[in-house]
Design a protein around this nucleic acid. Structure first.
Lengths: 126, 126
DNA sequence: CAGGATCCAAAGCGATACTG
DNA sequence: CAGTATCGCTTTGGATCCTG
């Protein structure tokens, strides 16, 4: 009768899973794959600022984790599509909510930062 | 009539917000603060593996972002409590769902990893 | 108890060049 | 198009020591 692991425990594999997903690029990729498969260079264009290396690495990790699938089509030149798996689908709603929380509450965060910095300035300044 | 930013855009402040939140430790801290305020060393004990430095840094950033508040009580020795703000509350449900998805689907991820690695091994091995 | 400051090793990541 | 491989810088993060 072993107790289930939880995210607070060190050693627990959950930590590795969380660590993989708690990554800006991974979240953006998963979010971008919502709805339909996307090709490599399309992802690269859409997710602005991601480098080819990081995109490649992150895709590979997410594929290994079973969150997305990689399909190769023997066109010329070759076409590669990335799509969410069922496992990926089970997470996408949360990821999407999470990613877009940032959009919706960006102003509040920015305002909080200004206030915080003002307080810090007045502490050392006047 | 400016279009709203979105997470896919570079330059957008949303990226900074997402980058802040897409962090294993930040998520664990926020999740741990759900329900009631928690003291510094209690967080340190509960979130296994986090160092004092990273805990301190992450708390400060999250406070600056307005997601949590820091309250000092003039006891001896001093007591410091961290609690979610309203802004933090608005995110906690998603964070919690996200963090615990890892717990619930850990087995599936681990299985996917094994299968992926087997495929890679057979590619180079046989 | 609740941190700040410092040192140092390790990981991350961009840029570049090359492959099928 | 869809990547891999390598180099070198930058950042992260743990460990340690110290303070109020």
């Amino acid at each position: 009768m072993q107790q289930p692991y939880n995210v607070y425990e060190d050693r627990c594999p959950t930590r590795q899973v969380l660590d993989r997903l708690a990554d800006k690029w991974a979240l953006l990729i998963l979010d971008r794959l919502q709805g339909a498969p996307v090709r490599f260079n399309q992802l690269r264009r859409d997710i602005q600022g991601i480098s080819q290396k990081v995109l490649s690495q992150t895709l590979k990790k997410l594929e290994r984790d079973g969150l997305l699938s990689r399909s190769v089509f023997a066109t010329v030149p070759v076409t590669v599509e990335y799509a969410l798996t069922d496992l990926g689908q089970s997470l996408i709603q949360t990821v999407s909510t999470f990613a877009h929380w940032a959009e919706q509450h960006m102003d509040a965060v920015l305002l909080a930062q200004v206030k915080y910095d003002e307080g810090a300035a007045s502490t050392s300044g006047a």
